[in-house]
Design a binder for these strands. Structure first.
Lengths: 358, 358
DNA sequence: CTGAAAGCGCTAACAC
DNA sequence: GTGTTAGCGCTTTCAG
């Protein structure tokens, strides 16, 4: 069935009447801000369910002084070459979680510009909080939000001066898993393609853990920094790597887009994948899935990242943000093994997806 | 100077006091919903200005029954290969205009999925309206929004059954300008790279107008459909085109990303740009600007498109949407001439940017 | 042309 | 453990 069913949405008073209690009680059942007897509680919940009750966002906002709007910024503007097919996944999960909690978004630019009334927005206190995805350390917005005391949660850590709440992948574990997998498949000289500038925590993390792990294994780390996250940059980096005397037999790329470029380079140079060269990407995007051969990739678990980011915001807003006390959350990645590293001919395998660790 | 200045934002009552009138009058001045004497009006405006007054979105929403939230959907999810660096520009302008009018966004997925509580959102939280950017004709969302009577404005026309309000570029004029320019520069056999599926009005428009114009000039239209909007697809299409006996001496690509691919193909085949081949892109993105040589491109005037889309929404909401009466707005593009078509060695030129035509 | 006052739906003192 | 009630800031009848 389809189409609108409730001509007039249920109000809190309707629920109260239906459950035979006062609206106060309904309010408290829904917010759990004061104890309610189990019986009453259940009656209210049932009534709310029956009437498909949803609090009116505006009314709640007016009463609590909240706006129910969150700032949202992600690496798009001015850095188009960083466009990452993983963002859509993340945005989807952020939006789903936000909708669930009654929040909507104000899309924020990474840098101030005359076109966007940023100051006026902040001045009039219209944001309850803000979520910044992969903020570069040169991000203009973060210091500004701090000045205006807007609680900020970043997805990926901010490397600038300010401290923020954050949720991030555990990239050390991720790289460890990749290297273990490559070793198992008999690859001996893995190389890493990262990014030409270290403005993202993600890049720093994968470089560091790759270096550490490789050196621990008694090998010299092969790391090359690509221009950007594009296929082209991946291609260029791969060509350089594969031209070396001690050429790598496996390449880990910072993102799937680059990995696609690596694949192209291998193809062009007549290097067979996965036999002569293993390739690993990151993002678990369609790019990796649809490649030929399909690419082994690190799944950052975007859905989890998004949900946790919103959860942190809610926690801060509900608890009345003790300043200085930062909430940080690590989400484990998942290694998705596909043909691009399946040297042994074993079928694809997928590592278990653990829950976020607190 | 920086940081929060107003500890307590001004309320409508403050403005009323400051101007020596009632809050009713202030409200009416701001909404122009009933006549107010010029004197009083000015006094109120001045007071509001002085106090930097901004209406509280939640309060207004409560009083009017609006949510002040707009659905926003653009081609990201599930169609990652369509990622277009022009979207960030458009999103920026949409967001700026929305903020100005007090609106925030709920990011909507193009297709229903179990992860996103779309039905529940529509049942309850009621969006005031929705903006769909380049909706494909197979878009799931549009029919759903219709069923729930959410006013929809599309950027680019929707080719499915339903009619919507829309704002769109005038692609016929755009292609005309490009062809004129190419002819001036002495190019005689222009070809067009479009998209493999006709699900977007944009693609239909440029193909049609290219065909019409070329045939009118007594030539056979050379049109090839690329796989997607990626550099790779542009490259592949260009290689095919440049392999023909009657090979084109100019290529117009549907988007800048493809045009970059065309450039790569020319380079690889040893075809000089702009001498042997002229290249034109679309989007006026950094991709075109930073290419070597810089690419001539069609500027869709994203800022104007975004502002107009929001303006239409506001008009519908304010006027009380007479159903059936669709608002449509055409925004003229601008041709940005750069080296990739500068055969005559003349410096870059830019066509004037006309205002939106009503 | 202008004002007073009654809500809009919810939260949170303040009672009991 | 539960209910009464006074706002939150704005729009909008209804009076004047």
């Amino acid at each position: 069935m389809r189409g609108p069913s409730n001509p007039r949405p249920a109000r809190i008073a309707d629920v109260a009447r239906e459950a035979g209690v006062s609206i106060t009680t309904v309010s408290h059942v829904l917010s759990s801000k004061r104890p309610v007897s189990a019986q009453t509680r259940q009656a209210v919940l049932d009534a709310a369910q029956r009437l498909a009750y949803r609090p009116t966002v505006a009314a709640r906002g007016l009463a609590t002084g909240r706006t129910m709007a969150l700032g949202l910024q992600f690496p798009m503007e001015g850095e188009h070459l960083l466009l990452n097919p993983y963002f859509p996944l993340l945005l989807g999960s952020l939006s789903a979680a936000a909708v669930h909690d009654g929040y909507s978004f104000v899309l924020l630019p990474a840098r101030r510009s005359s076109e966007f009334p940023l100051e006026s927005l902040l001045e009039t206190q219209r944001l309850d909080g803000a979520i910044l995805v992969d903020p570069s350390s040169t991000n203009d917005l973060l210091p500004l939000l701090r000045d205006y005391r807007v609680p900020v949660v970043t997805v990926g850590r901010y490397l600038g001066r300010a401290r923020t709440h954050w949720v991030d992948n555990d990239h050390a574990i991720a790289i460890g898993r990749v290297l273990d997998h490559l070793a198992e498949q008999g690859y001996r000289r893995p190389a890493l393609i990262s990014l030409g500038h270290e403005r993202y925590s993600y890049i720093v993390d994968i470089e560091d853990s790759f270096r550490t792990r490789t050196e621990a294994a008694g090998r010299e780390p092969m790391v090359i920094r690509a221009e950007d996250l594009s296929e082209r940059a991946g291609y260029d980096a791969a060509v350089t790597l594969l031209d070396r005397a001690d050429r790598p037999d496996a390449i880990i790329a910072a993102v799937d887009r680059q990995a696609i470029g690596v694949l192209g380079a291998a193809e062009e140079l007549g290097i067979s994948v996965p036999d002569e060269l293993g390739i690993v990407g990151e993002g678990d995007t369609v790019l990796a899935r649809n490649a030929n051969p399909p690419l082994t990739t690190i799944d950052p678990r975007a859905a989890e990242l998004g949900a946790q980011a919103i959860a942190i915001i809610r926690q801060i807003l509900d608890a009345g943000n003790r300043p200085g006390r930062m909430i940080t959350l690590t989400v484990e990645t998942r290694l998705v093994v596909r043909e691009s590293t399946a040297r042994s001919g074993a079928g694809p395998e997928i590592s278990p997806a653990p829950a976020a660790s607190p």
